Amino acid sequence: MPNTLPHWFLLGAGNMGTLAAWYLTRSGHGVTVIRHASPAPLEKTLWLPDGRQQALSLPVLDPAALPDHIDNLLVAVKTPYTRQAMAAVTDHLDAGSRVLRFQNGIGALDGLLPTGCQLIEAVTTSAVKGQHPDHTVVAENATWLGGSTTPPAWFVSLTEYWPDLHWEDDIRPRQWHKLVANAVINPLTALHDVPNGQISDNPILREQATQLCEEADQVLQQLDPAWPGHSLDNVLTVARATAGNTSSMRADRQRGAQTEIDAINGWLVKQADRLGLAVPANRKMVSALTLL
């Protein structure tokens, strides 16, 4: 019986891209990394939460060798590099293509996809750290995919291999909850070079977190009056649950990399500007981390 599961082309084989590729290949999906490199496979090592070591070998394809049409694209590149990465594949996408966006923040693919292209958004609470070729899966928590009215035919079988995977017809509330948590924990821990738990434990950081949450809730309630607000409680819960963790933005700053601030707090600022709302705390975070 022929394999009818999708074959994915992957942009961004970092921590989260590697995790997604691991789950997809376990379930029988094919994954090929798009990369300007030698054609040798990308050899990875994953360390799972239970201590098991898993090897992952992913074929590599130069952008110049891509097929005329890409059926399935997985975008897991860091958001600041999205436009540059997508430039290599845009001409290979059309209304029959499916794109799975596995990135932090919101809006990184705005204006970059052809009309009619199916976009599936992903929101995950899993955590991975490390640098190629070694990736340590800190936690396998819930992940949600969504963005269309019904899940693809292959989704049910994928849930057998992707822990705590769910489908949401309306994924926006999940995105917004994750966005607010990221808009507080990421920039504050990056600027002050502290682990996540300090957001709850340090009175000064907690006050800043309160201001960031209040502004975010104001924006989101203008976008959708059904937004419940009171985001601080959820943010502090996340900070305590990941107290010893280093946020991705803090890790980016520690190694001198560009952060994802524009797709997180920057997205909130753009919405606030459009709505005529003042969000000085979020604007301060964008300015501070853009200049670094």
Rank of each mutant, 00 (worst) to 15 (best):
W8A: 05
L10K: 00
L11Q: 00
N15Q: 11
G17V: 01
A20M: 12
Y23M: 05
T25I: 11
S27W: 04
G30E: 02
T32G: 05
S38I: 02
A40H: 10
P41Y: 04
E43R: 11
L46V: 00
D50Q: 09
G51V: 02
Q53M: 06
L56T: 04
D62S: 14
P63F: 13
L66Y: 15
P67L: 02
L73Y: 03
L73W: 00
Y81S: 12
Y81E: 09
D91V: 07
S97C: 09
S97D: 06
G105Q: 03
G107Y: 01
L113P: 09
P114S: 08
T115R: 15
I120S: 01
A122F: 02
A122T: 01
Q131E: 12
Q131T: 14
Q131V: 13
H132T: 08
P133F: 01
T136S: 06
A139W: 10
E140M: 11
W144C: 12
S148Y: 07
T159N: 06
E160K: 11
E160V: 07
W162S: 05
W162L: 05
P163L: 03
H166S: 12
W167L: 12
H177L: 11
A183G: 10
V184G: 04
I185M: 07
T189D: 06
A190C: 09
H192G: 14
N196F: 03
Q198E: 15
S200M: 12
I204Q: 10
Q208H: 11
L212Q: 03
E214P: 06
L220W: 00
D224I: 05
D224Y: 08
T246P: 05
R250Y: 04
R255Q: 14
T259D: 07
E260P: 13
E260Q: 12
A263D: 02
Q271R: 13
Q271N: 08
A281R: 06
K284E: 13
